[in-house]
Amino acid sequence: MKWIYRRIIVLFLTIWVAITINFFLVRLMPGNPIDILIMQYMEMGYSYKEAVTAVSAIVPFIPNEPIWKQYIDFILGVFRGDLGRSITLAVPIGQLLAYAIPWTVFIVSISLIISFSIGIVLGMYIAYRRGSLLDKALSLLASVLGGFPHYAAGVLLALFLGVELNLFPIIGPYDPEVEVGFNLPFILSVFRHAALPVLTYFVTSFGGWMLSMKSSTASVLGEYFVVAAEARGLPRRRIVLTYVGRNAILPLFTRLAISIGYMFGGVVFIENIFSYPGIGQYLTMSLTNRDYPLMTGCFLVTTMAVVLSNFVAELLYSRLDPRIRTGG
């Protein structure tokens, strides 16, 4: 039990360090939203003074307190669940994230489930047929696609399947004609619109799962208990699923948990390509506008996703391998 307390303390410390670094890093970036707005007014012919006056009137607040005070306010706000307000959108950041996170989670979860499921099935299959033409072809394909950046894959899929063949929508999370709500047209539309973002992630990631599963299965296949099970005359299906599959998949489960966290950061590109209103969109927007509070809020979510998924991975692994808990 002590182990878990230690882990939780480390978890909070990690989050605190990460958000502290994020907090100060974003404020070291050149430019700020006020300057950008002032420049826009000046381009309209306003003098600098007139532009400053006009911008001061429309910006909800200008963070002009000392940075250490801003930091303390921010940390206290995090404990209260208040991440502040976006400077450019004048909306509570919590409200923005509450809207964006479900869309990101939706894409991330479906993408992971599909790529993981298909990856392990194919991985196991080619592990049994090592050296076959299919094994070589799939391994090559996995290596090639695995090296493909999300962004390039997304654009190519959008151009080919969306624009050229007109098979899938390429813009937004659902069709503008449907009524938003719990109804079949809306649900179907959401799935159709998620198709390309999910496919983008699938294409670039299933190969990784497949190759990992192949290697894991290959190592399990050489174990004595498999040979023993075969010698006992157990049905092949039972050996494949219970003896080989279950053991081979264990290390991949922990990687799966970690992947969830990393995908929150990686999904930024996919969301931008397909105009998907997830957290990546707000992160990009906040970076462009130098909207510090929003930037910090987005980083907080991605940081927490990574740290928590690592924590879950550790928990999972400790359940699978008690030596982790005892430090043995």
């Binding site: 599909i114 499921s117 899938f168 929508p169 069709d175 047209p185 179907l188 539309s189 799935f191 159709r192």
Partner: peptide, 23 residues
């Protein structure tokens, strides 16, 4: 059931939904 869910996830986006397309 798992296979059916996976199939559904792939098939649903392919369903012809003329009324809901971008056109």
């Amino acid at each position: 059931l798992l296979v059916l869910i996976l199939v559904a996830i792939f098939v649903v986006p392919m369903l012809p939904t003329t009324n809901y397309t971008y056109s």
